[in-house]
Simulated scan of single mutants.
Amino acid sequence: MKKFINNPENVLPDALRGLAAAHPELRVDLEQKIITRAGKPAAGKVGLVSGGGSGHEPLHGGFVGVGMLDAACPGEVFTSPVPDQILAATVAADNGTGVVHVVKNYTGDVMNFQLAAELAAAEGIVVETVLVDDDVAVQDSTWTAGRRGTGATVFVEKIAGALAEGGAGVAEVAELGRRVNAASRSFAVALTSCTTPAAGRPGFDLPDDEMEIGVGIHGEPGRRREKLASANEVVATALDAILSDHPLAPADRTIVMVNGLGGTPLIELYLLFGEVASTLDGKGITIARSLVGNYVTSLDMAGVSITICQADEQMLTLWDAPVRTPALRW
């Protein structure tokens, strides 16, 4: 294993110290392991909180800031944050008008966020939960009951975050988040495994001439393994899975993200986006907004995920609203 680390046991606190040094607009609590916006929330603003295992950077701490999250709670690598940690983030984000939890559908995350929501309710904080389960690759996996939560998390955090920034109520923000999730689908393909600092070796063996079709963001197995294919074949496989599950019609407008899993060069991601754009254009489907880059990663995995959201006018307007976070800003 070759990694720029000091001690495998201290990767998360060391990284959080670096995040704090790089972004003074954030407040990083190293003891509670939560990341919040510096300063108090705006009066009457609904809080937005998310979190999960580390190793998916910039998700979630990189999306804390104006227009997105109020707080994030990073667990250890590929490990859910604990309930007390989530509660601390919830309390920090609460401004008396409620908090929305954005939770990826992984068993540990679901259980711990649910317990934290119950603890918050006992303290008088209203909590609504948006469960993200956009991955169409497999119905159940090693880590989940039901579909995994992946790239649509970014869409939910951005669009619901913009609505919260505008002063909407907790139920309205949560309902929009659920609607964005319902309109989104994702599919991922991996060319290599990833190596966690604690393990010091790849999480699974993948021969040089094979790829994992439908991989999860923790390296969970997908639908099948196949021989390495060309970019247009990979995109065809992913889009077939996405559009078979959530058909789109000509003239539909979409938000499309081609996301690197940590070890894929940007030149390849743009090449893949070109294939996606060409295919959707051939079907009369409009890409109204797009993201290309590393947004939901899996440490050093070479791979790509494609996320498509069938966006209505409200979603597009809120997508365009100002955002200022370490990883997303306009």
Rank of each mutant, 00 (worst) to 15 (best):
K3W: 01
K3V: 01
N10K: 12
L16T: 03
G18W: 03
P24T: 08
E25D: 15
R27C: 11
V28S: 03
E31A: 15
G39E: 13
A42W: 07
A43Q: 15
G44P: 14
G44W: 09
V49W: 05
S54Q: 10
G55Q: 11
G55K: 10
H56T: 08
E57G: 06
L59V: 14
G61D: 12
V64I: 09
V66M: 09
V66K: 14
M68K: 06
E76G: 05
S80M: 09
V82G: 05
Q85V: 07
V91S: 08
H101R: 03
G108C: 02
F113N: 01
L115I: 15
E118L: 04
A122I: 04
E123M: 12
V126F: 02
V127G: 01
T129I: 06
V130D: 00
V130I: 03
L131D: 06
V132S: 07
D140I: 10
W143T: 09
A152Y: 07
T153D: 07
E157P: 04
E157S: 07
A162F: 04
A164G: 14
V170F: 04
V170G: 05
R179D: 13
L191F: 13
T192M: 06
T195R: 03
A199V: 11
R201T: 13
H218T: 13
R224N: 12
E226D: 15
S230D: 14
A231K: 08
L239Y: 02
D245E: 14
A251L: 06
D252E: 13
M257F: 05
L261D: 07
G263A: 10
G263P: 09
G263M: 01
T264D: 05
L266S: 14
A277M: 03
S278F: 06
G284P: 14
G284N: 11
I287Q: 11
S290K: 12
G293C: 02
N294K: 14
Y295R: 11
T297N: 06
S298E: 12
A302E: 06
A302H: 02
G303Y: 07
S305I: 04
I306S: 00
T307Q: 05
I308T: 01
M315N: 12
L316Y: 07
P322N: 11
R324A: 12
W330R: 12
